[in-house]
Design a protein around this nucleic acid. Structure first.
Lengths: 110, 110
DNA sequence: TTCGTTCCTCTAGATTGTCTAGAGAAGTGG
DNA sequence: CCACTTCTCTAGACAATCTAGAGGAACGAA
């Protein structure tokens, strides 16, 4: 019925995926792992959320996909940021700061 | 097609409404005004978002509604927090800090 | 060889909160 | 009487995430 515990805020997934790929190209599983790790287990990215999101980002031209082989000798689709993705990341990060700052102000007033 | 500018993050509306009502009971229009003001115009709460949200919060027992007359001599529905709403606000605020902290960490890594 | 486990990708359908785009009532001032 | 402001409300569209699956391929152990 209700939502679980620390779900993603809708709209932040794109941001954190783009930001992850700005570090280096990664495949899906790696992205999920990275996000879970850096968020200190706050976010556990759903595969049913991640893969559609990656497709969406490819479709919008913000990331690029390429099949490769991992260190473990497995097929994996590696994604990396395009120039448009870089710009998009900048905008989304700025918007995040704006929005989270606004929420913080509302929380601290009164 | 796309979303506008600084829309709400899905899930934050409940939080900021509850937080607003923790200051004092308010009617819908007043809540919208308060949020827009305190957020420094980052959030412009849609009436089509606000009223369904208020109904949702009433249904969950977190706020209580009561018809009154405003200072301007107009009928308005005043909402205020219930005890359960207080508790819920605490949880949602804590969750917000958790989540926004996690996003911030992801943004600053790398 | 077979079996379980890990790595890794992917999809359909439901859910749900927000947005768009309206409507409308009632008081106020010109 | 008319325009404007205040204030509430709804239907339907939309879009991102979640649930709940499926499945392939490499590896190590038995």
């Amino acid at each position: 019925m209700g939502r679980k515990n620390a779900d993603l805020l809708q709209g932040t997934l794109d941001l954190i995926v783009l930001r992850s790929l700005a570090i280096q190209p990664m495949h899906g599983w790696q992205i999920a792992h990275h996000i879970q790790q850096v968020s200190e287990d706050v976010f556990r990215v759903n595969q049913g959320s991640l893969y559609p999101a990656l497709q969406r980002l490819v479709r919008k031209g913000w990331i690029r996909a390429e099949w490769k082989v991992t260190e473990n000798n497995r097929r994996a689709r590696y994604y990396d940021l395009t120039a448009a993705g870089q710009r998009r990341l900048g905008k989304e990060a700025a918007n995040w700061r704006l929005v989270s700052g606004a929420v913080d102000r509302i929380l601290s007033v009164g």
